[in-house]
Design a binder for these strands. Sequence first.
RNA 1: CGGGACGUGGCGCAGCUUGGUAGCGCGAUUGCUUCGGGAGUAAUAGGCCGCAGGUUCGAAUCCUGUCGUCCCGACCA
Length: 575
Amino acid sequence: MRLSKMHLKTLREVPNEAEIASHVLLLRTGMIRKLVSGVYGFMPLGWRSVRKIEDIIRQEMDAAGGQEIHMSAVQPAELWQESGRWSAYGPELWRVKDRNGRDFCLGPTHEEIFTDIVRNDISSHRQLPMNLYQIQTKYRDEARPRFGLMRSREFIMKDAYSFDKDYEGLDESYRIMYEAYEKIFSRCGLTFRPVEADSGAIGGSNSHEFTALSEVGESEIAYCEKCSMAATTERAECKDDPASDEEMLPMEEVNTPETKTIEEVADFLKLDKKKTMKALLFVKYDNDGNENGYVAAFVRGDRELNMIKLVNALDIPEHAIEFADEEKMSKVTGCVGGFTGPVGLHDCIIVADSELVGARNLCAGACKENYHIKNVNYGRDFKADIVADLKVLKPGDPCPVCGAPVKHARGIEVGQVFKLGTKYSEPMKAFYKDENMKDHPIVMGCYGIGVTRTLAAVVEQHHDENGIIWPMSVAPYHVIITLVNPADETQAAVAEKIYEDLQKAGVEVLLDDRKERPGVKFKDADLLGIPVRITVGKGAAEGRVEYKLRRDAEKTEMSADAATAEAVKTVNEEK
RNA sequence: CGGGACGUGGCGCAGCUUGGUAGCGCGAUUGCUUCGGGAGUAAUAGGCCGCAGGUUCGAAUCCUGUCGUCCCGACCA
């Protein structure tokens, strides 16, 4: 492609709407264009990179036995009502009505549609296992779209669904996808870590996220350097401190004026924070959005509540719970903002962290303004409706597997794999008949990759202060020829020859034949990040050109033919 | 949804405090010079100052509302 003919507009200045590197660079290179908040279009170079990623995904999915299909983005509400997610999914589901007032949504994911396909088409065990996938535009009406392609309302996703006879088959399908994902992200040039994850709104029992490591990433992961433990902090199990062998002491109410926070209470009573417990108060909503009772969650004073673990313990969707209005809640349950403890609380669901069961003589709120109670003990003084691990695993806490101190890192979630089991096949009646004509629900798995988010993650991991540094595999073009002075016939002829030779060799090549000053061309070449660069300039009369890789600082002078050969070799090795 | 900031030619911004009908840099077009790291010069085009009300003789500027955008939080495969 000749740059003089290409639809390309690079920006010299940083658009004020962008903060992080991938967003800034994708806008400055003109690869993406914003339409409205969270909705982006792709210009020629951007679209080529998207297609590169898609092609890598297709190759690996096909190699893993997947079959590509393409479903509509528009989905009828009926299917979502059948699975129960029409109400469970929440406001992120982008709902639309047709002219007759019938409800639809723009698909955020396609479990229902794929389940519907197989329940119609699959009836025999002989048709299983099967894996179907698509690469398609998805919609999620995000509360706060941000960082360009990182969290957008419209995005491209590859979603795959596996269908098996039983859980053993699912384990195998899951393993195959997991390995395919490792290949895909490696080929895209990403540094990533598969981590155990919560299954969220998609549902199911077992899940891994593929996280591209990056400081600007929105997911936080905990991992252990001594063993293989790696999980999102939402998911990571947090070990209880061992049960105390202290004697239970009698409860004692103490006056603790103006001590609303754990720090204040611990300071005032000269207690270790570990000898206190804190209360977090929530209001629960039913599927229609009406208030549906209160929840009080308790963790030790030095711990932090993990909301995901709480909603999982309650077995409700995440959006069905919110911090409670303490005054309103007080009238029903007797809680007192800042002084809430489990003793004296009534008419609400009490959820206690498992660590509290073995702890002894903790200080808790007295449910009375300016009073706390010392020596509160589980079992004797209060009981919980639910006991579960509710804690956030913090850096330095013992690894739940081996006990070594864990570390934390941030990352961009570029893919996730789930074991769904029969979560969809059962309610939607996707059954197959076995050898004995007996019906069984199909056992499903689902596997997603954020294609456009992967593009952003690649840029996050591969850039410098001058621009993008594309890995060969996802670069929009492999080689850029900078023709320093197009008016110089010798230079032009040498550049044209290299351009043609590279194309004949199957290399994707850009020829910068614009009537621009050299500085502009060099700056653009840096910004665009094309991996191999050949500069045709002063040396052209002697048949000499410069060869340079975007990622390297040094350039090499060589003959035009040698540069062409070197470029072909490098591209074929790396693409 | 809560908190904060911002909307002025394609992009980045000034002007607003103290109202008088819009300016700078980049970009674009044309000429001349220049030509290996975002050139110099001269000229030209391009803006109902987000939108709607209000105050005023007069509003980019003050007031109210509204829409949009970004950041933090809430939320989020």
